[in-house]
Computed example of a mutant assay.
Amino acid sequence: MKPCPFIAVEGAIGAGKTTLATMLSDRFDIPLLKEIVEENPFLDKFYQNIEEWSFQLEMFFLCNRYKQLEDTGLQYVSRHQPVISDYHIYKNLIFAQRTLKGVKLDKYRQIYHLLTEDLPKPNIVIYIRASLETLQKRIEMRGRDFETAIDPAYLQQLIEDYETAFAELAEREPETTIITVNGDEMDFVEHPEHFEHIVRQVKELL
């Protein structure tokens, strides 16, 4: 039996993950799983002092995403019902490996692998690749106060981390189909034809 679609949309901060995931959810009429971001009580402190608050921030995200995906497995995947999310759990390692060091990183990796080893994994991932300039414009447009403190150097490093991580993900999970969207050239919000191009790519896999 062909596995039921579990689609994840990914990309660095400001890439447009939630926007695209919501648009696809509406188009294909499938449930949307949205990550918790602004509800994280450590975000403001993290962007002011990354080293001091990174472990608390990453653990909050990990535990919340674990719970969401555990519920998703029970509600949709195990019942062969399609679902789309605006994140892949693998992103937790992308961020943690950038912000955590030494013993804290080792502990985090152990907890991550323990929690995620039996979670449902997306079989289709849409990766929005975008430059620093594009991300900064989109971050400014959505106007989240806590994101105004993001260091451009941190954001640029995150872009590079995502590139490395998705190359690794393609090797680690060869059964996962990755669709790469050029976020600098494609504006799926302002240009309907750009969104339709993505829709056609997803339809071919469905």
Rank of each mutant, 00 (worst) to 15 (best):
L33Y: 02
L33C: 07
K34A: 14
K34Y: 02
E35K: 01
I36W: 09
V37N: 10
E38R: 13
E39N: 09
E39Q: 07
N40F: 04
N40P: 01
P41M: 09
P41Q: 09
P41W: 06
F42G: 05
L43I: 12
D44S: 15
K45F: 12
K45T: 11
F46H: 04
Y47P: 01
Q48R: 14
N49A: 14
I50A: 12
I50W: 05
E51Y: 07
E52A: 14
W53M: 13
W53C: 11
W53N: 15
S54C: 10
S54F: 05
S54Y: 06
S54G: 11
F55W: 13
L57H: 07
E58W: 08
E58P: 03
E58D: 13
E58H: 14
M59W: 04
M59P: 01
M59R: 13
F60H: 12
F60Y: 15
L62H: 11
L62Y: 06
L62T: 07
L62K: 11
N64Y: 07
R65A: 11
Y66K: 10
Y66M: 08
K67E: 14
K67G: 03
Q68L: 12
L69A: 06
L69W: 08
D71M: 13
T72C: 14
T72A: 15
G73P: 00
G73K: 10
Y76V: 01
Y76C: 03
Y76W: 13
Y76E: 00
Y76N: 02
V77H: 03
V77C: 04
V77G: 00
S78C: 05
R79I: 00
R79Y: 02
R79F: 02
P82S: 08
P82C: 04
V83D: 01
V83M: 04
V83A: 10
I84A: 06
I84V: 03
D86S: 05
D86K: 09
Y87T: 03
H88N: 14
I89S: 10
K91F: 02
K91G: 02
K91E: 05
